[in-house]
């Protein structure tokens, strides 16, 4: 069966209006090969609301993250940062609102696994690695490949894959620890291992929840360099409290407060914002 020919004109420019464009491509179309992000946004959140027994953790939030952007999300405790990540990764379903990955993937209708396979990687606040496995195995499992049961039963590592794992091991500075059990690593090393696993996944969008917590200054600096290198090829969304770190990486900052976007712009802009000062410093 051949698909009906599409007029070349439509293919180049589906529609001016974003909403209609999605309609034309197909709502909730899952797992397209390669991400369709022709409109330049990798993540589109509109009117997202999450309420827990009446309490609104996120309240009518709009957020757009562009392709290749490195976005920092800051905000006081309880601003809804982690809940936001839960919504994007499918762990929590929004009570209301739209969440699009690229132009075609409706995140609210996909399972966590589908979302991960579609190309969103997540790093938890507390580093979670597979403690009983070696560092190498951890990276191997994260590698972007066929992850079905049958594939795993007969999987063998190709030289190319081995090379990729070695490369990432080098990037995160854990070559020496490749054969050690991940559980025996230090806190900072676990953080790097988890970042390494994200790299192996090769996602379009990386969500990083407090990636430099528990790292030394040198490690933090190194991480900042790493993230800046990643941006451009990947899109990153970083939740962080460490303002120094935010200042060293972000070109664009979003401030969340009580589930809403309080301010957006460069770090200097938001730091000068009256409301942000009020929220952070109190009256």
């Amino acid at each position: 069966m051949r698909p009906a020919p599409i007029h070349p004109h439509c293919m180049l420019e589906p529609s001016i209006d974003a909403g209609q464009g999605r309609e034309a491509i197909g709502l909730g179309h899952v797992a397209a090969p390669g991400l369709d992000a022709r409109h330049g946004t990798v993540l589109t959140l509109e009117d997202i609301t999450v309420s827990f027994d009446g309490f609104k953790a996120i309240d009518a939030l709009d957020l757009y993250i562009g392709v290749g952007e490195l976005r920092c999300i800051i905000g006081p405790n309880g601003a809804g940062k982690t809940t936001l990540m839960d919504v994007i990764t499918g762990k929590t379903r929004p009570t209301r609102g739209k969440a699009w990955f690229g132009d075609t993937l409706d995140l609210t209708r996909m399972s966590e696994v589908q979302i991960a396979q579609a190309g969103i990687g997540r790093k938890f606040q507390k580093p979670t690695v597979f403690e009983a496995l070696t560092v190498f195995d951890n990276l191997e499992l994260a590698h972007k490949t066929d992850k079905s049961v049958w594939a795993c039963l007969g999987a063998r590592l190709s030289d190319e894959q081995r090379g990729r794992i070695d490369e990432v091991l080098g990037t995160i500075g854990l070559q020496a620890a490749r054969g050690r059990a991940a559980g025996s690593l230090s806190h900072g090393q676990k953080q790097f291992l988890e970042i390494g696993m994200l790299l192996m996944q090769d996602p379009q969008l990386l969500l990083l929840d407090e990636p430099v917590a528990g790292m030394t200054d040198a490690e933090t600096e190194f991480t900042a360099e790493l993230f800046k290198r990643l941006a451009g090829k990947h899109s990153l969304m970083v939740v962080e409290h460490d303002m120094g770190f935010v200042g060293s990486i972000a070109d664009h900052v979003t401030v969340l407060h009580q589930g809403r976007v309080l301010a957006e712009g460069s770090l200097q802009q938001v730091q000068a914002d009256e409301r942000v000062i009020e929220v952070y410093l109190g009256r």
Binding site: F52, D53, A57, T82, T83, D86, K91, T92, F124, Q125, K126, T128
Partner: peptide, 8 residues
């Protein structure tokens, strides 16, 4: 069950 943020 109480609804709430998923805690890891």
């Amino acid at each position: 069950a109480l609804k709430g943020r998923v805690i890891d």
